[in-house]
């Protein structure tokens, strides 16, 4: 931390999948690069005391191969598993995916939907912050120069709770999400939705939570999408209300609004089915 605060040109990295291309493209070489993978806390996965602790510098390939984590947070693992090719999976991490501060990061919507906290260390010691508060805009985080994320603390899922993540890309692999959607659903013993969180990627400057989703979905047994149930339209409207997308090389604003609704429905259905399966 001292090194980082003393070196304004310093960079921390774990997978470096974004840092290296930036340097190759002409970003000034950092005055110092700190490899977070060498810090033990960043590399562990633990489940104790009602929380999972997931190291911020663990390659996605390790997360997707972790049976316990996959069972507890299938949506988070789906998100992590979609960050690039197998080659990128060998390098890319949750911490890097978050701190790169792209609105299209695949692992961030599930982290936000799960209510995950980031454990941040820096000159001022250790602090924690909701993942949703770490990114404040495209390529901008609330971390100061000396700070980095060591791990994520995620509430262990209760019985009847699960999550899902889906994204849309034009190819089957290798693209950045045009739209992404994560859902976390908790159902009661009868399979009725008690609580829901829906979080969208790539439709606004940061990932956004559809805060109205819980109210719309609560008390319902969530079936397959049929187009007949009116609450899907309500959910769609709530999704669109949260979208503030742009036209860019990956898609139009109009397209993102439409597909955000589609993906929100699909992930809600998947998360609800998974939640019921835990009963």
């Amino acid at each position: 931390m001292e090194l980082l605060s003393a070196n304004p040109g310093a960079a921390v990295f774990a997978g470096a999948t974004d840092l290296i291309p930036q340097i190759q493209a002409g970003r000034p070489e950092p005055t110092l690069a700190v490899d977070l993978k060498r810090i033990p806390e960043t590399g562990r996965i633990e489940n104790s005391g009602g929380f999972w602790r997931v190291g911020a510098a663990i390659p996605a390939a390790v997360l997707t191969a972790h049976a316990g984590l996959s069972a507890a947070f299938p949506g988070l693992v789906e998100g992590a598993g979609l960050i690039g090719s197998d080659q990128i999976q060998g390098r890319a991490t949750l911490g890097g995916n978050l701190c790169n501060a792209s609105p299209a990061a695949d692992s961030v919507p599930p982290l936000v939907a799960l209510g995950a906290e980031a454990i941040i260390v820096g000159r001022g010691g250790e602090r924690s912050a909701q993942v949703s508060e770490v990114v404040i805009g495209p390529s901008a985080t609330s971390l100061d120069q000396s700070e980095f994320i060591t791990e994520f603390r995620i509430p262990a899922p209760s019985r009847g709770s699960s999550d899902a993540y889906e994204r849309f890309i034009p190819r089957t692999e290798m693209d950045i999400a045009v739209v992404g959607a994560a859902a976390r659903i908790r159902v009661d013993g009868d399979g009725r939705c008690e609580e829901a969180a829906v979080v969208l990627a790539a439709v606004a400057p940061t990932v956004v939570e559809v805060s109205a989703a819980s109210g719309i979905l609560e008390g319902r047994v969530i079936p397959h999408y049929s187009g007949r149930d009116a609450f899907w339209d309500e959910l769609g409207e709530a999704v669109v209300a949260c979208c503030n997308p742009i036209d860019d090389k990956r898609g139009t604003a109009e397209y993102r609004r439409k597909v955000a609704q589609v993906l929100a429905r699909r992930t809600v259905v998947t998360a609800a089915r998974r939640a019921r399966e835990t009963l």
């Binding site: 034009p170 190819r171 089957t172 692999e173 290798m174 693209d175 950045i176 860019d248 090389k249 990956r250």
Partner: peptide, 16 residues
Amino acid sequence: MENPGFLDYRMPVASD
């Protein structure tokens, strides 16, 4: 040009 790389110049990959 906004997509001068294989990330956004989307040539088919095997799984497509």
